[in-house]
Design a binder for these strands. Structure first.
Length: 570
RNA sequence: CGGGGCGUAGCGCAGCCUGGUAGCGCACCACCUUGGGGUGGUGGUGGUCGGAGGUUCAAAUCCUCUCGCCCCGACCA
C-alpha cells in the first residue's frame, strides 16, 4: 500500500478524552474514531490490525476443531425469557422493539441462540462433541465505557460454545481450548497468563481468564514465583498462617485515640505495627448485621466474603447510621470486643494475640485484646485479599505470590447444563435415553486484544506492533521520492518485489519532509523500516532500522529482499 | 445510578468572573522556501459559541431547562 492510497489520519495532539496510552495512541495513529460513547469506527489502519488478530483466532479455532458460524446480532426476547436471563440481565442488555412491538435485544452474548440452534440440529450423541464459534460485534450497555476499545459498548468478540454427552468430554474440549487460547496470545506476541477465575454471573464450575500483563490493567492477579499457579485476586486463596495462636500475655486496656480513624493513623499514633491490629467491617448478614474481622494490614476480598453463608447477597456495607446502631460508635472505632452480632474473622486475624482493635466508643481503642478471653472465639474463614509475598496456595509449592496487573482478553468456562437444562437441549445417548448436554463457552475480546497489544508495546514515539499483528510489516521511506529519479526508481522496484514476496509494505510516497514521515511511521508502529536515499544509494545500499533499534544498519541493495524475508515471519 | 468537571473552527485551548464586531496554536488550501527526525514565510478557507427558553437596547458571557461527553465508585471480552 502506498500512503497516498490509504487514509493516514495521524494527529499530533493528544485528544483530551483519552486517558490510557492505548486509547491515545489508537486515536493519534488514526486507527479508530469515536462515534458515540463506547462506539467506534475502525479506520483502515486499525482494521488491518483487527483483521490480523481475527485471522490468528480463526486459524487456532480451526486447529482446535471448532466450526465457524455467524449468528444474528439481533435476538428475539423469547429465547432470553426461556433461559431466564431476560429478567436477570438488567440494563446492560440493549432492548428494542420491532414495528410489531415485539421485543428483541442486541446480543451481548449468544448462549441462547447457539443452544437453540443445537437443540434443533443435533439429535444424536454421535454428533458430539460439537464446538461452534463466531467472530461478531457484541453490544453491552456498560455503565461506564472507558479507555476506547478497551471497554467499549460495541466490541468485536470471538465466542465459542461446545456441547457434550458428558462432563469428561467437556473437560477434554476445555483443555483443548485452553491450549488454543495460549497459542493465540503467543502468536499475537503478548506476554500473558492464564489464571484461575471466579465464574461470576455466567455460572458454571471451572473457569480461566487469560490476562495480558500490563501495569494499566484493571484486574489484579496473583502469580507464583516458583510454580505455574496464577489466579485472579478475587479467587486467590490465602493460606492460614503457620503455627498456633500465642496465649494472651497482657491484660486488655483502653487507650484514647482521638481523631485516629484509619488503621494507619491508629498504628502510627500507638506506635504499633499494623500487623498487630484488627479491623472490623460491618456488612449486612442474612439475619441482621455481621462483623468481618481482618488483620489491620489486610484488605477484604469482597468476592470471598459474599460467598459466606452468613452474609447477605449481594455484599452491602452498613451505612454510618446502621453502624452507630450496631456498634454504638463511628466507623473509625469499631471493634470486635463486646459486639452483639455474629463475628467472622479471617484466618490471619483469628491468629492474633495481644492485638489492638476499636473499643466501639468514639476515639478509643483497646490494647492487648485477645480472642477467647476478651471476645468470643470467632467463626474463621478466608476472606482477605492475598498480598505480595503470601505463600503459594498450590499443594506443596514453596513459592510466594507476586501481584501483577492484567487486562482480561479471554475467558473460558465449563458451563455445565445451566442453559441446556433451561432450554431442554438434549441428545439421545447410546441407550436411546435423552441426555441434557453439558456445555462450555469460550470468549476472546478481539478488539480488546488490539488495545492490550498497544498497552504492552509502545514507547514515547508511538506504537510498536508485534510482527504478527502489525498493519504493515515494513515501512519503505524514500528520501526525495519526488526529487530524485534514482530514489524513485529504486523505491518503486523494491516495493513491487517486497510485495510480491508476500510482505505487507507501506510505502510513503508523500511529498513530505523526512522528519514528518519518520514521526508518522514510528507513531503507527510499523515494526521494520527501510530508508532509500541518494546518500545510501551512492554506496548501493539502503538503511534498515527495527522499530526498537537505536542504530541504523546498511543493507546492500542486492540483498534487501532476502534480508527482509528472513527477518519478518510470515 | 450517585459524586465532580467540560461543551467556543477538524484537533488542542483562551475569551465568560466584570454583557458591546469571536480569538490563538496545530491541521487544511494557495504560492514561495526548505529537503535525513514534525522547516520557515506570506496570504487564505472554516465557527447558528451543544440545544431550547428567558433577562437585556445588546448574551459565548447572566438565569432556567435540556442534550451530549469526560473523570471517581458497583460490572465484563
Amino acid at each position: 500500500m502506498r500512503v497516498s492510497q490509504i487514509l493516514l489520519a495521524t494527529v499530533r495532539e493528544i485528544p483530551a478524552e483519552a486517558e490510557t496510552l492505548s486509547h491515545q495512541l489508537m486515536l493519534r495513529a488514526g486507527m479508530i474514531r469515536k462515534l458515540a460513547a463506547g462506539i467506534y469506527t475502525w479506520l483502515p489502519l486499525g482494521l488491518r490490525v483487527l483483521r490480523k488478530v481475527e485471522t490468528i483466532v480463526r486459524e487456532e479455532m480451526t486447529r482446535a476443531g471448532a466450526q465457524e458460524v455467524l449468528m444474528p446480532a439481533i435476538q428475539p426476547a423469547e429465547l432470553w425469557q426461556e433461559s431466564g436471563r431476560w429478567d436477570q440481565y438488567g440494563p446492560e442488555l440493549l432492548r428494542l422493539k420491532d414495528r410489531h412491538q415485539r421485543d428483541f435485544c442486541f446480543g451481548p452474548t449468544h448462549e441462547e441462540v447457539i443452544t437453540d440452534l443445537v437443540r434443533r440440529e443435533i439429535k444424536s450423541y454421535r454428533q458430539l462433541p460439537a464446538n461452534f464459534y463466531q467472530i461478531q460485534m457484541k453490544f453491552r450497555d456498560e455503565i461506564r465505557p472507558r479507555f476506547g476499545v478497551m471497554r467499549a459498548r460495541e466490541f468485536l468478540m470471538k465466542d465459542a460454545y461446545s456441547f457434550h454427552l458428558d462432563d469428561a468430554s467437556l473437560k477434554e474440549t476445555y483443555e483443548v481450548m485452553h491450549a488454543a487460547y495460549s497459542r493465540i496470545f503467543e502468536r499475537v506476541g503478548l506476554e500473558f497468563r492464564p489464571v484461575a477465575a471466579d465464574t461470576g454471573t455466567i455460572g458454571g464450575a471451572v473457569s480461566h481468564e487469560f490476562h495480558v500483563l500490563a501495569d494499566s490493567g484493571e484486574d489484579a492477579i496473583a502469580i507464583c514465583n516458583k510454580c505455574d499457579y496464577a489466579a485472579n485476586i478475587e479467587l486467590a486463596q490465602a493460606l492460614p498462617p503457620l503455627g498456633k495462636r500465642p496465649a494472651p500475655g497482657r491484660p486488655m486496656q483502653t487507650v484514647d485515640t482521638p481523631n485516629q480513624r484509619t488503621i494507619e493513623e491508629v498504628s502510627r499514633y500507638l506506635e504499633i505495627d499494623p500487623t498487630q491490629t484488627a479491623k472490623t467491617l460491618l456488612v449486612k448478614g442474612v439475619g441482621g448485621a455481621i462483623a468481618l474481622v481482618l488483620r489491620g494490614d489486610h484488605e477484604l476480598n469482597e468476592v470471598k466474603a459474599a460467598k459466606l453463608p452468613q452474609v447477605a447477597k449481594p455484599l452491602i456495607f452498613l451505612t454510618p447510621g446502621e453502624i452507630e446502631l450496631a456498634a454504638g460508635c463511628e466507623v473509625g472505632s469499631i471493634g470486635l470486643v463486646g459486639l452483639k452480632i455474629p463475628v467472622v474473622a479471617d484466618e490471619s486475624a483469628a491468629r492474633l494475640a495481644d492485638f489492638v482493635c476499636g473499643a466501639n466508643v468514639n476515639g478509643k481503642h483497646y490494647l492487648n485484646a485477645n480472642w477467647g478471653r476478651d471476645a468470643a472465639e470467632p467463626a474463621v474463614a478466608d476472606i482477605r485479599k492475598v498480598v505480595e509475598g503470601d505463600p503459594c496456595p498450590a499443594g506443596n509449592c514453596t513459592g510466594t505470590l507476586t501481584i501483577r496487573r492484567g487486562i482480561e482478553v479471554g475467558h473460558i468456562f465449563q458451563l455445565g447444563t445451566k442453559y441446556s437444562e433451561a432450554m431442554r437441549a438434549t441428545v439421545l445417548d447410546e441407550s436411546g435415553k435423552a441426555v441434557v448436554m453439558p456445555m462450555g463457552c469460550y470468549g476472546i475480546g478481539v478488539s480488546r486484544v488490539v488495545a492490550a497489544a498497544i498497552e504492552q508495546n509502545h514507547d514515547d514515539a508511538g506504537i510498536i506492533w508485534p510482527d504478527a499483528v502489525a498493519p504493515f510489516h515494513l515501512a519503505l521511506v524514500p528520501i526525495g521520492y519526488h526529487k530524485s529519479a534514482r530514489v524513485k526508481e529504486v523505491t518503486d522496484k523494491l516495493y513491487a518485489e517486497l510485495v510480491r514476496h508476500g510482505l505487507d509494505v507501506l510505502m510513503d510516497d508523500r511529498d513530505e519532509r523526512p522528519g514528518v514521515i519518520f514521526a508518522d511511521m514510528d507513531l503507527i508502529g510499523i515494526p521494520h523500516r527501510l530508508v532509500i536515499g541518494d546518500k545510501g544509494l551512492a554506496k548501493e545500499a539502503v538503511e534498515y532500522k527495527g522499530r526498537r533499534d537505536k542504530q541504523l544498519t546498511d543493507i546492500p541493495l542486492a540483498d534487501v529482499v532476502a534480508r527482509m524475508r528472513g527477518l519478518i515471519p510470515l
